[in-house]
Design a binder for these strands. Structure first.
Lengths: 257, 257
DNA sequence: GGTTATTCTTGACACACATCAAGGAGAATT
DNA sequence: AATTCTCCTTGATGTGTGTCAAGAATAACC
């Protein structure tokens, strides 16, 4: 799903910087109505990478572009599913609505990732809503197109099974984290998820605003801020806006409180 | 997955009373070494109900019986996956290990349900352990047998996709419950999940010990007991051992605290 | 460049739930 | 029937994290 090492919290692209999608992004920005190469984009999605040309063509036929602006809703909780979505560029959050504006972010979807597949195989409606965190470009692939693709290529079904399994695994990890880990432990786990294998130190930007990350980790912005402060005081991290510096990865990993 | 109405917390069979499996259960009890009809059992699993005779035969070849005693472990967290398990009779719990005997129950699997499918499609090892809550009879179906069945019948792949989607949905529901519902609300939601559509009152037994249910709902046994007491005092439920009586379903549903 | 929104931080306080500890209630065993 | 488990309940107390409220910092906008 990602070349960035083990993702403890899947669905998050901490550093959305895939060269391919960045270039597409510019095309989208400068020529909003330019006919982008949908088939090339689809063929490069992790989910479709092993598909043949003809299957891709089928999917292209069943797909349409969606260009939500920042804050725009893709679908609401309870909406019926007619297909699934792939993020070409931008960022989408999936979340539960809650009382008075409060909400619980389940996932942050970045370029090259997709969402909404699982609901196609059920009669149920979306359990979450999807909202653009930034101006974005999505592809919507219709249920029908995908189902015919599955029938044509049964190795593709296995690919989809693998994809859903990874999500399931990620959700199980979340349940574990929420159940038997403290807020600080969840945050540390989240920070270390970006680990590139590089020893010693690392440095990166948070992929979204701190309140969004906080919600993703099941924390209030206040608690999130305080934990960040504690870790900074302990010398385990440095924070500059969204930029996080970890001087000693191993030391942070040892942190258990 | 179940004919018992909408399952908010899937993986749980509150009243394991399927006539077919009960009869098998007796066979198992009286003739522990009797050659049970594996193909009939497999063919009646929700997951395999639409499979042809030949595909069932393939699965039977790749399956073996497992008879864990109460407390016995089926697999440990970290074990590699070689297939998946179907519960013929008995009860299996999936849980995360935790410090000093404490553990977090993720699911309680009853007759006719299966577990461990998702891990077959990934390279990862089990994120939870599986332990028998009672003496049980399981079928283990090998990865290879299942994969050939998928290749033979591509409608079967869709069936599996649907199965995994339901699990995913269930986990999302759990995440929602843990994130933005109080303990009492989770418990009420759990009790109402057994709702048979019957109006007014209902009555049923908890499917496992209270401490297991408590863990499933992310509560300590103490808190679980206290909430049960509160609900009883409020006249919303009656408790007699594992037997729960709900005099007014609608009243309980209204409960929000 | 200054003004207005957002976003983030920090403090004081409240509360849900966990923890620790001890006592009951059954069921199983002797 | 008595004993030993295991499971459950109840009380006293602690604490992690949320809530409310008010600044500070940053970004967005005119």
């Amino acid at each position: 799903m990602s070349a960035r090492g083990p993702l403890n919290f899947p669905y998050i692209t901490p550093i959305p910087s895939c060269a391919f999608y960045d270039s597409v992004c510019e095309i989208g920005d400068y020529m909003p109505n330019h006919k982008i190469d949908v088939s090339e984009i689809l063929a490069n999605l992790p989910l479709f990478r092993q598909l043949g040309q003809d299957d891709i063509a089928l999917l292209v036929q069943g797909s349409r572009e969606i260009r939500p602006q920042k804050g725009e809703f893709i679908f609401q909780k309870g909406d019926p599913s007619h297909g699934f979505y792939a993020v070409v560029h931008g960022q989408i959050k999936l979340a539960f609505p809650s009382v008075q504006g409060a909400e619980k972010v389940v996932a942050i979807i970045g370029p090259g990732q997709s969402f909404g597949e699982a609901m196609m195989f059920m009669e149920k409606s979306y359990p979450v809503f999807a909202q653009a965190l930034t101006d974005s470009l999505l592809l919507h692939i219709s249920k029908q197109a995908l189902f015919t693709a599955i029938e044509h290529d049964n190795s593709f079904a296995r690919k989809m099974l693998a994809g859903l399994s990874i999500r399931l695994h990620g959700l199980i990890h979340d349940v574990e984290a929420y159940s038997l880990r403290s807020g600080a432990q969840r945050l540390v786990g989240y920070l270390l998820q970006n680990e590139n294998g590089q020893n010693g130190q690392m440095e990166f930007d948070l992929p979204a605003s701190k309140q969004i990350i906080a919600s993703r980790l099941n924390l209030t912005p206040e608690t999130f801020s305080r934990i960040l402060h504690q870790l900074t005081e302990a010398g385990l991290i440095q924070v500059d806006g969204r930029r996080i510096t970890i001087p000693d990865i191993e030391a942070l990993r040892q942190y258990d409180h």
